[in-house]
């Protein structure tokens, strides 16, 4: 805390520190690293607890995206025919839905990282960045579970297994860093404005429609002015989806430019949003 006039008060005696003072960013990061086991344990605990009370339990982790794929396939693939220009539409759609769900769930759960854990925030002292990290890790775990459904879908739909599939690992890794960055931003925003939880679903639906989850951006932008395609292909969600499809599907090229954009979004978002979240460290207990 700073005094109203902007200065920091003097300690009344040597050796006394101001309670709850925000640590310098390097020391903060060191403490955060010290809490890495807590992040892991708290994430896996909240992941397994999240679905209790449902009959099907954790099966919903894969059932929900499967149902989404079925609905999108019916509406977009069969009725609206957005599948044109896509050779293996069902696999294309599935990769898109599963990977985009990771962005959505990081965003929505990240906005509740502080407000949903106020009990912890008001009881224990630890770097609050633990909480958005934990919500993002839960989202990542769910994505990894869902790969157990996605990969059979892709194989059954006729894609051959190839070494190229290993590119999925760096692609998801970069997407995870980007999603963590998003979580830091919305965690601080959500701590200040609780209404974020109502706004974000709209935002993420809009984002899904422009990211080429259920249609091909290349086919869509063919008749459009050049800047439309340039803007759409700079969209981080589009880039991560494109990299995932490049790994799993034949005939989905990814350029070096795509990888460059993916790295830039991941690193840039993470660094900026980590600093943004850290700057709010002292306000999270007063929510």
């Amino acid at each position: 805390m700073t005094l109203p006039d902007g200065s920091h008060p003097e300690a009344p005696a040597p050796g006394l520190q101001r309670a709850g003072a925000r640590l310098p960013v390097d020391e903060y990061t060191r403490r955060l690293w010290h809490r890495r086991w807590f992040v892991a344990a708290y994430s896996s605990a909240s992941n397994s607890v999240g679905y209790e009370g449902n009959f099907l339990g954790q099966a919903w982790q894969v059932l929900t995206p499967l149902l989404n794929i079925a609905v999108y396939y019916l509406i977009f693939g069969l009725l609206l025919k957005t599948s044109r220009g896509v050779p293996n539409y069902i696999a294309y759609l599935s990769v898109g839905v599963f990977l985009f769900a990771f962005c959505t769930s990081s965003l929505v759960s990240g906005s509740r990282a502080i407000t949903g854990n106020l009990g912890l925030v008001r009881a224990l002292q630890f770097p609050r960045a633990v909480l958005p990290m934990s919500t993002t890790l839960v989202a990542l775990m769910r994505l990894i579970y869902s790969l157990m459904v996605l990969i059979p879908i892709v194989l059954i739909s006729g894609e051959p297994l190839a070494w190229r599939w290993l590119e999925l690992i760096p692609a998801i890794g970069l997407q995870a860093l980007f999603c963590l960055g998003l979580a830091f931003v919305v965690a601080r925003l959500g701590a200040r404005v609780p209404d974020m939880a109502e706004i974000l679903p709209f935002f993420s639906r809009m984002w899904m429609y422009v990211s080429g989850v259920m249609y091909s951006v290349q086919v869509f932008t063919r008749g459009q002015p050049g800047w439309v395609s340039r803007v759409m292909t700079l969209n981080p969600a589009y880039v991560y989806l494109q990299l995932g499809r490049h790994a799993l599907l034949v005939g989905s090229p990814a350029t070096a430019g795509n990888w460059l954009v993916a790295v830039a979004w991941a690193v840039g978002t993470l660094v900026m949003s980590y600093l943004y979240f850290w700057r709010g460290e002292e306000e999270y207990g007063n929510v």
Partner: peptide, 14 residues
């Protein structure tokens, strides 16, 4: 405990 920031005043701890 440093969990809530005072709106006015300071808490010092060793």
């Amino acid at each position: 405990a440093g969990l809530m920031a005072p709106s006015q005043g300071v808490v010092w701890t060793r």
